[in-house]
Nucleic acid binder design. Structure first.
Lengths: 294, 294
DNA sequence: TAAAAATACTCCATAGGTATTTTAT
DNA sequence: ATAAAATACCTATGGAGTATTTTTA
């Protein structure tokens, strides 16, 4: 059976006349009769009762008529849907994000994406470590990652977004809290709260490396999984922390942010599977490239 | 576009391999490739990404794959549904019924029909006058009528079901209530409650005709639309009534039913549109014919 | 270089056309 | 008597087959 049979049957059922139906279908009446008979033969039942004066639907034909119309509409709808997806107007996009960008960069980006692609279904996963995002990109559980630059982004496409200064998060009242700026050495010996996750966490690796390279002692008193917890711990006076600038969006009372001089910033990048054909991703990448240039 | 394209695409999408898909479809690989390309051409978009090592679905292709499977399943389901309807296993049947049969014959029949045709959707309309049922059959608002035999059943098929004796409904305590049987003359001069509806009501016509033919006076004090009201009025002592035997199923306290001798019974028949092709109706008619013979 | 899809061509099955007959009102 | 569907037969489009080339991992 083919869609042709359904199209022909629907037209005959609408016209209740083989001649008029054939005209509407731009074909002759005999082949139309043949095709309808062929359809009835395949179904093994009568869809129409014909006399020379009347063509009528049998009860089975009436039900089949309804179904056939639904099927033909579904065929059209499937094409339209595919078209919307292919053009990037509809689709799904799961975005991962590191903790430090979850509270300022991610909301801004979500706003921009939703404004530009209103019919796209977005999923946002905050507080993901950069290394976990790379794995999630490969296994397909996210389509786009907002992460720190990682050493080996094999098979991944990297779009630079911004460079974030490093700040020290200091409890109000601490001797360093009044400083306009400070140097890494000022933190030497101070109790530190750092990100958990070891090598999978870029913040953990970076902070540890900075102290090591400068030959300074890092006295880690706590390792926490979420950026929000990190800041809360500082506010509670449990220690100091080194954070990228967007973390200041977490304006927790009792925490003061002081820029650290003499250390490089941390790059925030958007990452996607290389040559991922998802048109929504392509449009999102274009949009992010534009935003980064501003 | 034809179902062939959907079948081929679904198979390729399932196998992710043109060669294996072609084998499953019992055809060669080149024409399969051609048909898929033709489908993509008609849709104006890519459904698959092919290399010599991998065949993958594009996002649009993944969506189209889901839809195509739904559509193919719908095509099968439509055929199955038509088949069930054609064989009378599924369908709709609206049954009309006269008041006197609404309370005993109709429930028995409903039970029998539902037992035999469990997937059929029945609709029952009780308390319909025979004339109204004939009209309802012609305009399609009922498919089967349980009615009294009418004089001119043009275009209708009539199946005799049973002959109902006529009884007098008498209030308890009335002088006739103790009689084993009575004659029509005993009712002459008594206050009568009869069915409303004039010529459209067979009960009305029959009772009126019986008195006229016997040259007896009929003293009609009330005309009511429902059989239940008729019996209630008798119970309330407003008058006597002539009713067919199945009405006794309405065992209202205070009403005694006494057989009337010397008058014919009233035939109850099932009526349907002549040559109505509805298989459910055909099966119902068979069933009723069987029941009537018992 | 080897596996797989695409291309080039050939063939025939069948969708669709024309002429005519049958059927029901 | 007539309108309309069915039948008979013919034509030709295009779906499917075979042989070969191209591509990429």
């Amino acid at each position: 059976m083919e869609l042709r049979h359904l199209r022909y049957f629907v037209t005959v059922a609408e016209e209740r006349h083989f001649g008029r139906a054939a005209a509407r279908l731009h074909m002759a009446q005999p082949p139309l009769s043949q095709q309808i008979r062929q359809l009835e033969g395949e179904l093994g039942l009568a869809l129409l009762t014909r006399t020379t004066r009347r063509v009528d639907l049998t009860p089975a034909g009436a039900a089949y008529f309804d179904r056939a119309r639904e099927i033909l509409a579904a065929v059209d709808a499937a094409g339209d849907e595919a078209d919307r997806i292919a053009s990037g107007r509809t689709g799904r996009l799961i975005v991962g994000c590191v903790g430090s960008a979850t509270y300022s960069v991610l909301p801004d980006m979500a706003r921009a994406l939703l404004a530009e692609l209103p019919d796209v279904e977005f999923g946002f996963r905050g507080e993901m470590l950069s290394g976990d995002q790379a794995a999630a990109l490969h296994d397909g559980s996210i389509d786009l990652g907002l992460m720190r630059r990682i050493p080996d982004p094999a098979g991944l496409e990297v779009i630079p977004l911004r460079e974030d200064r490093l700040l020290a998060a200091v409890p109000r009242g601490h001797r360093l809290a009044k400083r306009k700026r400070l140097r890494l050495a000022d933190l030497s010996g101070e109790p530190l709260v750092i990100h958990a996750g070891g090598g999978r966490s870029t913040m953990n690796t970076t902070v540890t490396a900075l102290f090591d390279e400068a030959g300074l002692e890092s006295k880690v008193v706590h390792q926490v999984a979420e950026t929000s917890t990190l800041v809360t711990f500082v506010a509670a006076g449990l220690g100091l922390a080194v954070v990228p600038e967007p973390t200041t969006a977490l304006a927790v009372p009792g925490v003061v942010y002081v820029p650290i001089s003499g250390v490089g910033g941390m790059e925030l990048v958007a990452t996607a599977r290389q040559e991922d054909p998802n048109p929504v991703l392509r449009r999102a990448v274009e949009l992010l490239t534009g935003l980064a240039e501003v």
